[in-house]
Design a protein around this nucleic acid. Structure first.
Lengths: 163, 163
DNA sequence: ACCTACCGGTTGACGTGTCAATGATGCTAA
DNA sequence: TTAGCATCATTGACACGTCAACCGGTAGGT
């Protein structure tokens, strides 16, 4: 592990004003970008990014179906969150739930034709929005840098995981 | 306006698989970082980042007070959001609201001693967490790159503003 | 004076997220 | 066998955000 010690650079414990400013810019901008994409998706397709995430996973699953638990870990959600979200999606007819034949107490989540159709209509505009708001905003070097930054931050989060 | 045309690089409208992968990494990681900071703050001080934002603004205001509307635009929140949040903070004794003497229909938001104290206790651990999870995770070059990426994304968001 | 239009702020409805508690079911060890 | 115990999923309570409607007051135009 080539891990940077927390006490490097003279043992300062707090960020400098400059570092803090960059952090705030970075954080607020990525958050704003996320909500802009969210509202674009909402406007184009009446789906939330949560809906989209679920529908994407189901679309790619064999039989367009998945066990609830597998779905949760596939998209990295807590089961409780998924359960609430599936309830809302089921009310809107985007998915269906049924008892799982193989696993006791297991619930199978099925993509309905309504859901598949909604997902199909949403995909192209959503990808185009990602291109317009992210890819086209950055130079190729910056995109690569973004990838490296994400990897470094992720490594740090994993290293300091608090379970 | 030195604006990149959306149709550059051969007029592709959709991101490549590579670009999309980076986007997802980038987005999910920054989101995860945000929620980690949120839960650290919550654990250290029983404040949410929303609470912290409001308390920070009030702490820095003359008289530790601000008109609701000015506060909203200072921290970039919608007024409705602020109103709901102030209601919750008032219930917990972190702030007080009173009629504004100068502006008719204006509401003055005041920092209580409870609020000031909570903010004081929260600040150091919060800044330390930002350092641990963001600053220390990146090289100085990467921090600079993060700043440039944020600026570029922000410029794009502003250029395509949809009001 | 009156009608309208805006302005500052609040409210209600609803989607979303977390946490902790609850059912329901199978596995395992005394 | 039965007393735990883990697993799969749901539920309820609550915090947070957005949207649209609302309310009370001031300002302009006729």
């Amino acid at each position: 592990m080539t891990e940077t010690t927390p006490a490097r650079r003279g043992g300062r414990q707090l960020p400098t004003a400059q570092e803090l400013r960059i952090w705030r810019d970075f954080f607020e901008t990525t958050a704003a970008l996320g909500s802009r994409l969210e509202s674009r998706l909402q406007g184009d397709s009446a789906l939330s990014t949560g809906d989209y995430t679920v529908l994407l996973a189901l679309s790619e699953a064999p039989e367009q179906a998945m066990r609830s638990s597998a779905l949760a870990s596939h998209i990295g959600w807590e089961r409780s969150r998924l359960s609430h979200h599936l309830g809302r999606m089921e009310r809107r007819g985007l998915i269906r739930r049924q008892e799982c034949a193989t696993v006791p107490r297991g619930a199978e989540v099925l993509l309905t034709t309504t859901g598949a159709e909604a997902f199909g209509k949403a995909t192209f505009p959503h990808l185009r929005a990602i291109r317009e708001l992210f890819v086209d905003a950055l130079t190729p070097d910056q995109i690569a840098a973004a990838g490296e930054i994400a990897a470094a931050l992720r490594a740090r989060l994993d290293a300091l995981r608090e379970d």
